[in-house]
Design a protein around this nucleic acid. Structure first.
Length: 616
RNA sequence: GGCUCUGUAGCUUAAUGGAUAGAGCAUCUGACUACGGAUCAGAAGGUUAGAGGUUCGAGUCCUCUCAGAGUCACCA
């Protein structure tokens, strides 16, 4: 039991014994005391003044006296405006620090035997990954790591959207204009190679559409179908899909290809495998650069027909109903949603049917009691509906479903648009942050002996830290503005700032090892400076932060914790001497404290997928 | 139009219903010939979109208004 829990328990007892009132220990509010007041932790006593029938200050004083008397670790107290500030005995902090240092997994919970599946990334296979995927991947990865730290057994999966119109467009374009070129023959990264054909297809398709709009057929359609006062431009914008399906020559080719694919045409399948293979090769590189991996891949080509059994199931349970045309629906109007089709009249699946089937299949595969879907917030409604249906079907995992919804990444100039070429490519971005970090290292011209080949390794850690931290520090639900220049900043609230505090600590530790400094006098130190106390209180909160981050699926909590800890450490470093401390006890203690901070920073940042360099 | 989300300093953001709303960037001013200045300190910058309400206490909860985004396909 840590100190905050002890205090909660003790306050509960105080309130019972002093005022004869019942309270729950977990509801007693115990916070770190703000720096401008004396004390380590503060208890909010307002909730008890009614039972005490006394003024807040008097109530606080009584509880304070009780705690001082009954709790060994409470050394003193003071009362300010109804807040009870408690001072904790140095012995507690000494003991705490020993525990941190002797426990390399400090903050992590023991295995709880429960299983959770996290789905993230889930790209289409027609073009390379972009900035939006990066946010998704970083959220999914760090969320997985945090759940792991919270004791869960985590299975990381992605569902690869490897079939459908999009990939057929790339395939069709390559057949038409590819002249048999390959990634190897052109030297283009293979997912970009495929993406280039997708772009080419879209470009040609646009040309075809524009020409058609001015053709007799196009004009006739416009005349016949446009709404009153609707401009041709607006009409054709809305009509695009219909045109592609009914009139486009390129579109006809794609549809034919899709049909062949569905009928297992060997040539089409071979082409499909080849082009998807290229894409996977490229994705693997990007995933590797981002330092992420998956435990299991699901492919839409294997899952897109799933869900029919669930439909039967739902009909049997009368959760679903069949309309006259044969289509199957679910009526969610009593839950505030609409009616939703789950099976077309022709008996084929829709998107949500697949997701229903996939959920059940995954449960059969892994038996995870929780499933987290990392998907952009455009799909909030879809997941609300999906989860509601699974709940009504009484699926055993239904209570453990969570949509980790995140806001779109926008540029300072607005939303990224493929057609305007403003999409930030993942590989380009990674290369850019690495380049800038390397530039930074060279500019600083450190003579600390970082060799050229090592520079690239360090630059990778620094650049990726800047990029990852910049994205993860923002709360997932918030739409984020991605300013490319700020994302590679190395100063202020950034990944490299946190890395730098670790590098400083590492420097100290190397000297300790080199000079064989004895750290045992640390235990005799008890006159903590405020800067030291601040670090102890911050470290003490780490397990709690991890738990909160896991409970709320929120990596930004860990990111902000790491920043606050690093900031406190930089201040400690500046204000107090370590090696030149006044006494051997102070020196040893500060070294131990530094070690504990370094260990915790490394642990926390690792959960975000950020590596610490030894020097920078 | 219905539903959902968002609105905090010039910009990017933080704050389990708790003390004077906390940071970073940008701007201005400073810092040890010392353990690494990718650091530290200070100044300036706020009616937390607005109006009511609940509460001992509201950026946070409730109602309404305003602004922005998303969504409301037998697309995925």
């Amino acid at each position: 039991m840590n100190i905050t829990q002890q205090l909660q328990q003790a306050v509960k007892q105080a309130v019972e014994q002093l005022y004869g009132a019942e309270t729950e220990a977990v509801k007693v509010q115990v916070n770190a005391t703000p720096p401008e007041f004396t004390g380590d932790y503060s208890v909010v006593v307002f909730p008890f003044v009614k039972a005490a029938k006394k003024a807040p200050d008097a109530t606080a004083a009584e509880i304070g006296a009780f705690l001082e008397q009954h709790v060994d670790t409470v050394q003193g107290y003071n009362v300010v405006k109804g807040f009870l500030n408690l001072e904790i005995a140095p012995a507690y902090w000494q003991n705490f620090m020993e525990q941190v240092l002797s426990n390399p997994t400090f903050g992590r919970q023991p295995r709880n035997g429960r299983k959770v599946m996290v789905e993230f990334s889930s790209p289409n296979t027609n073009k390379p990954l972009h900035l939006g995927h990066i946010r998704n991947i970083l959220l999914g990865w760090s969320c997985s790591q945090i759940l792991d730290a919270a004791g869960y057994n985590v299975v990381k999966v992605q569902i690869i959207n490897d079939r459908g119109v999009a990939i057929c467009k790339s395939m069709s374009a390559w057949l038409k204009w590819g002249e048999g070129k390959t990634p190897a023959s052109t030297g283009i990264k293979s997912d970009h190679f495929v993406g280039d054909y997708y772009v080419e297809f879209e470009r040609e398709s646009k040309k075809e559409y524009e020409a058609w709009q001015n053709s007799e057929a196009g004009i006739a359609i416009f005349e016949a179908k446009h709404k009153p006062n609707q401009a041709a431009k607006d009409f054709f914008k809305d009509y695009k899909n219909k045109w592609f399906n009914d009139h486009s020559v390129l579109g006809a080719d794609v549809r034919e290809m899709l049909l062949k694919w569905e009928n297992h045409d060997p040539e089409t399948l071979a082409l499909w495998r080849q082009m998807n293979g290229w894409v996977y090769e490229g994705f693997d590189q990007t995933y590797s650069d981002l330092g992420v991996s998956f435990d299991k891949l699901y492919y839409e080509s294997n899952t897109y027909l799933l869900g029919k059994d669930i439909v039967e199931d739902g009909l049997g349970k009368q959760v679903f109903f069949r309309k006259e045309d044969g289509s199957v629906w679910v009526d969610l109007t009593d839950a505030g949603f609409d009616q939703k089709v789950v099976l077309r009249a022709d008996g084929t699946s829709v998107y949500i049917t697949q997701d229903l089937g996939t959920a059940r299949m995954r449960y059969e595969d892994f038996g995870a009691e929780k499933m987290v879907y990392v998907v952009a917030d455009e799909q909030n409604y879809h997941f609300d509906v999906l989860f509601e249906i699974l709940k009504r079907l009484e699926e055993p995992y239904a209570a453990g479903l969570y949509h980790l919804s995140y806001g779109l990444v926008e540029l300072p100039t607005g939303r990224m648009k493929t057609r305007e070429g403003t999409v930030v490519d993942a590989d380009d971005l990674i290369a850019e942050v690495r380049r800038l970090a390397l530039e930074g290292i060279k500019e600083r011209g450190e003579d600390g002996g970082i060799q050229t080949e090592a520079q690239a390794v360090v630059a990778d850690k620094i650049g990726m830290a800047a990029l990852k931290y910049f994205i993860i520090k923002v709360h997932p639900h918030k739409k984020m503005i991605f300013n490319p220049e700020e994302s590679v900043d190395l100063q202020g609230q950034t990944g490299p700032y946190i890395q730098y505090s670790y590098v400083r600590i590492n420097g100290l530790m190397q000297r300790v090892a080199r000079e064989g400094i004895d750290l045992s006098p640390a235990a005799a130190y008890s006159t903590f400076e405020p800067q030291e106390k601040e670090l102890l209180v911050a470290l003490h909160d780490y397990p709690n932060v991890l738990q909160n981050a896991a409970d709320n699926y929120d990596p930004s909590l860990v990111a902000n914790f790491c920043y606050a800890l690093a900031k406190s450490y930089h201040k400690f470093w500046h204000d107090l001497s370590v090696f030149n401390a006044a006494t051997p006890e102070a020196r040893a203690f500060r070294l131990q404290l530094s070690k504990a901070v370094g260990q915790t920073l490394q642990s926390g940042m690792r959960l975000l997928g950020i590596e610490m360099p030894e020097r920078m």
